[in-house]
Simulated scan of single mutants.
Amino acid sequence: MKQQQVKQQSVAVLTRIRKLLLGMGENDGIVFKLVVYLLLIGIGFIYLYPLLFMLVNSFMSLDDLVNSMVKWIPTSLYTENYEKALQVLNFRKTLMQTILVAGVPSIIQMVMTSVIGYGFARFDFPLKKLWFALMIATFIIPPSVTMIPTYLMFKDYHLLGTLKTYIYPAFLGQGLKSALFIMIFYQFFKKLPVVLEEAAQIDGAGYLKMFYRIAVPTAGPAFIIVFLFSFVWYWNESYLAALYFGNKLTILPLELQKFTDSFTKMFPQSGGQGNQINEAIKMAGTMLTIAPLLVVYFVLQRWFVEGVDRSGITGE
C-alpha cells in the first residue's frame, strides 16, 4: 500500500512538471513559450541589426571608427556627423520636396484606387473580367518595359520636371503599384455586407453617398495600408524621380546617392583630416533619409497592424 502511494505521488509530481513545461495543450507551457520567444528574438535581431548598427556608428568619431576596441558603445556622442550630413543633404529643403513628391501622389492614388476597387467589387458592367485582367497585367508587366514610352509621352506633353508626371498617372489609377492597391480595396469592399447598401438605397441614398457614408468608414484600415505603402514606394523611387524630374525636383534618396560627391564639393580637403568623409557620416545621412519613414510608421502602425489583421479575416 505504501509503495503504491509513493508511486501515485511520483506520477502526480511528473504530471505537474509536464504541465508546467508543456502546458495543458502542449502549446502554452514554458518550453513552447521559450522556443517561440527565442525565434522572435532571433528574427527581430536579424531585422533590427542593420538599423542599430547604422545608428550606433553614425554617432562615432573617426577615432572610434578606427579603434578596434570600440564596437557598440562610442566613447562619446559625436554629433558633427549629423551636422555635416544635414548640410550635404540640404535636409530641410529636400525633406519638404520629398514629402511633397511622396505625399501628394499617395493621397491621390489612395482616393482613386478606392473608387476603382469599389467599382469592381460592387458593379457589373460589360467586359468587367477583361478590364480586371488588364488591370492585373499592369502590375505584372515590369516597369522597365513601359519606362521609355512613358518618358517620351511626358516629354511630348511638356510634363517633365514637374510633379504632374506623378499626379496624372495616380489620378488615372496608374500610379506606382496601383493594381495592388485596387486589389486591396476590392477585397475589403467585397466583404462588405450588401444588405447595408440595400438599406441605404431604400432610404434614398445614391451610389456616391453609399460609397463615402458606408464603404469608406468600414475600409479605414485599407486606406491606412494603401497610403503607407504608397508613401514609402514614392519616397524610395529614385530612378523614376531622376528620370522625370531632372534638376527641377529632388528627393532624399537621390541626394543620398550622390552624397559622397556632394560632400567632397562642400567640404574640400585642405590637408587636414577633418574634411574627409567616412562611414559614420554616410550612415548619418542614411539615418536622416529613413528617419521620416520610421516616424510615419510609428504614428500609423496601430491602424496598419489592424488593417493587415482584418484583411485576413473572412467576413470582416
Rank of each mutant, 00 (worst) to 15 (best):
I30S: 07
T15M: 11
E26C: 13
W72T: 08
V56W: 14
A12L: 06
V6S: 05
V56A: 15
S58N: 02
L65Y: 03
E83M: 00
V11D: 03
F59S: 07
V11I: 12
V36M: 03
L48Y: 00
L21G: 01
R18D: 10
Y49F: 15
V35Y: 01
K84G: 05
L22C: 09
M60H: 10
K7T: 08
L20Y: 06
V13T: 10
S61F: 02
R16M: 05
S76C: 05
S76E: 03
S61G: 10
L39G: 02
I73G: 13
V66S: 15
F45H: 01
N57D: 02
V13C: 02
M60G: 04
V36R: 07
S61P: 00
V35M: 09
L21E: 07
M60T: 02
G23P: 08
G42L: 15
V36H: 03
L77I: 14
S76A: 13
K33C: 00
T15H: 05
W72K: 09
L21S: 00
M1P: 06
Q8E: 11
P74Q: 09
E83S: 13
I46Q: 00
L14D: 03
G23C: 08
I43W: 08
R18T: 10
N67Y: 05
K19H: 04
N90H: 12
S68V: 00
I46M: 10
F59L: 10
V13G: 02
Q5E: 12
N67I: 12
D28Y: 07
Q4F: 01
Y37P: 01
S58D: 07
Y78K: 05
W72F: 15
F32T: 12
N57Q: 08
Q8I: 09
M24R: 15
T75N: 06
I17L: 05
I41K: 04
Y37H: 10
L48H: 02
I46L: 14
Y82I: 15
L86F: 12
L40R: 08
L51C: 08
L52M: 12
V66K: 10
G23T: 07
D64L: 06
K33L: 00
E26L: 15
K71F: 15
Q5C: 01
Y49N: 04
S68R: 14
E26G: 07
Q3G: 02
Y47K: 10
Y37T: 12
V56M: 14
E26F: 13
K19G: 04
M24W: 11
E83R: 13
N67Q: 12
T75F: 00
E83K: 10
I17F: 04
M24T: 14
S76Y: 11
W72Y: 15
V56I: 12
V36D: 02
F53D: 11
Q87R: 15
P50W: 12
